[in-house]
Design a protein around this nucleic acid. Structure first.
Lengths: 215, 215
DNA sequence: CGGTTATACGAACGATCGGTCGGTCTTATA
DNA sequence: TATAAGACCGACCGATCGTTCGTATAACCG
């Protein structure tokens, strides 16, 4: 059974599996999880089309793993950096800023994997939809949790509705993708940032914790 | 040339053309403009696949007309009703509310044609993308214009940045689609509504013009 | 009536889709 | 060294994609 970690066959497989997944997330951020063609993915990953089926039973399994892969990438690029900021209102802003930087840096050529995936699967029942919904719930729940922390620390008004604020932060960040790509790139990121900053300053008990609003 | 309006052939053609376009916008709101297959569209519209090419040269022409059709539908369902509200801050809110009602009523099975189209074409250059970008610019510009009117009427603070507020209103409304479909439907619409209401009440010179915030 | 025009159709095209199959090469195990 | 297992490939499958073509039908015009 070779559960041994030294099995070169498994190592090689795992390496190409990850290479394929990375390409899949990149391509899916552009063409969507459905528009992701195995042929194009094969070419992009430098393997043969039939080579996939050594790793995944069908396209749906690949899609499921791609969602998980994108989730880990999201944690690595947005959640982890934001945890460097001190807990409280500054961490809430850091979370939003890390997201906008992720978009602006074009880590993914399509801007945002989850944005595309959400729009594509919000009306297509199945296991992929469920995984995407779960990932979205986890993300919004995490924002909510960071907000609650800020409230508990007394840095945000006690009247703050964490679920409400989490929705607003997610919405204001998400829309930056399309606005940046279809209209004015700089204006979109600037407004997405300023909207959350203003909102947080209005709710903060000590606005001095936050940068000033460059009006 | 029979420019005469009484030509039964042209009338019949126009009728089926519009029937096809309506179905195209509906289907595209679910599967996207690219995922819109001519075969499925033919079946849904009750015509043959090859019948399209009497009306459109290729799929791209159909997509362009679908964007225009969706734009007119948007004006009819969102812009026109909002114009019933008195100019000023109440009209700004009415615009947002009409949009949320459009989503909640599921006028389109996929929720929002433009949302899907924007995400799909924001990174796919071509005439379709240009049309979508133009439509988005027109919509955001219209919000901006209604906001400016409210400022000019003295109903919104003179400090209000219309472009900034327009971005926020669009973002908060747009995200309601996926949040409603993937997470909690009622919560999504409630939060999308409340977010804009709170924002407007904070900027309004006379908050009594607006409904109270049901906190 | 004949001739023209526009709508709409069925059949077929090449291309591409997701997926299968038999086999090759490499690596681990007995 | 023989055998099993895993990664990977080329060839191929049926289905569906967007599109073309030739034709049938119906409405207009002279």
């Amino acid at each position: 059974m070779a559960g041994n970690r030294r099995d070169g066959r498994l190592l090689r497989g795992e390496r190409s599996r990850e290479a394929i997944l990375g390409q899949a997330v990149s391509l899916a951020s552009v063409h969507g999880l459905g528009g992701l063609s195995l042929g194009r993915l094969a070419e992009a990953a430098g393997v043969s089309k039939s080579g996939f089926f050594a790793h995944w039973r069908d396209k749906e399994q690949l899609q499921l793993d791609a969602v998980e892969w994108a989730r880990l990438q999201w944690i690595e690029h947005i959640v982890q950096p934001a945890l460097q900021a001190p807990a409280g209102v500054r961490r809430v802003l850091a979370l939003h800023e890390a997201r906008l930087r992720f978009y602006a840096d074009e880590v993914l050529p399509g801007g945002c994997f989850f944005f595309v995936a959400q729009v594509e699967f919000d009306d297509r029942p199945g296991p992929v939809r469920d995984r995407i919904a779960k990932a979205l719930a986890g993300w919004v729940g995490f924002i909510e949790q960071v907000v609650e922390e800020a409230v508990a620390l007394g840095e945000l008004s006690a009247d703050t509705d964490p679920g409400q604020l989490a929705y607003e932060i997610d919405a204001l960040g998400e829309a930056a993708v399309t606005h940046a790509r279809l209209l004015d790139r700089d204006a979109a990121y600037r407004r997405a940032h300023r909207a959350v900053l203003q909102r947080l300053r209005a709710l903060a008990t000590d606005p001095a914790l936050l940068p000033e609003d460059p009006s």
